[in-house]
């Protein structure tokens, strides 16, 4: 497996990139429970849920593909329901339980949907993949993956520019069959 490498550090969970905004920027206190861990954050009120996860909590699995709620790459779950994190302000999610791709399965293990995506080559560049998987897991949980037509329709909010759609459907069918 390729390794991440180099002298660089990933954005650290202490929020190394937030350098204390000037006082005139309104700040908000937010408590988010992310992947079963509670975080207390003091944020610029404009910070989206996506940027809070990525820039302030170091959870870079959710991706920014449009920042306009149109591509689904930032899909995470809030209290078990899908949200596009780029269209949500972090402050709106005070006290909510957020699940990201990093929290889908215990470290070192794969959720059945993750394993199915790997098996079916349901991605190429991989950038949309965390969002696709979060949507797919939600779809199954919501009971909306009952037919091929439903899968096609309900997965259409997650763009894949590499064009892995047939394999994404195959992975979801396979994960469903595994129960």
């Amino acid at each position: 497996m390729p390794r991440n490498r180099g002298a660089m550090t990933q954005v650290d969970a202490a929020g190394a990139t937030s350098t204390g905004a000037a006082p005139e920027v309104p700040q908000v206190e937010v408590t988010l429970t992310v992947n079963d861990t509670e975080h207390h954050l003091r944020l610029d009120s404009r910070v989206t849920l996506l940027d809070a996860l990525r820039d302030h909590l170091g959870l870079t699995g959710a991706k920014k593909g449009c920042d306009q709620g149109a591509c689904g790459a930032c899909t995470v779950m809030a209290d078990g329901k899908r949200v596009v994190a780029c269209l949500a302000l972090a402050a709106q999610y005070e006290g909510r339980r957020i699940t990201t791709i990093e929290g889908l399965a215990p470290n070192g293990e794969l959720h059945p949907m993750q394993a199915a995506f790997a098996r079916h080559d349901a991605f190429q560049c991989g950038y949309c993949t965390p969002g696709q998987i979060m949507s797919a897991v939600s779809l199954v949980a919501e009971g909306r993956a009952g037919s091929e037509e439903d899968i096609r329709e309900f997965m259409s909010g997650n763009l894949c520019r590499c064009g892995a759609y047939p394999n994404i459907r195959a992975a979801i069918r396979d994960a469903l069959a595994e129960g």
Partner: peptide, 25 residues
């Protein structure tokens, strides 16, 4: 299967905008 599949399905594959540094602006 892709050798990078485990990285990509777990969100651990780091794309250019996933990198940061202390003091990043």
């Amino acid at each position: 299967d892709r050798v990078d599949a485990p990285m990509k399905v777990t969100g651990k594959a780091h794309y250019p905008n996933d990198f940061g540094y202390p003091g990043l602006v």
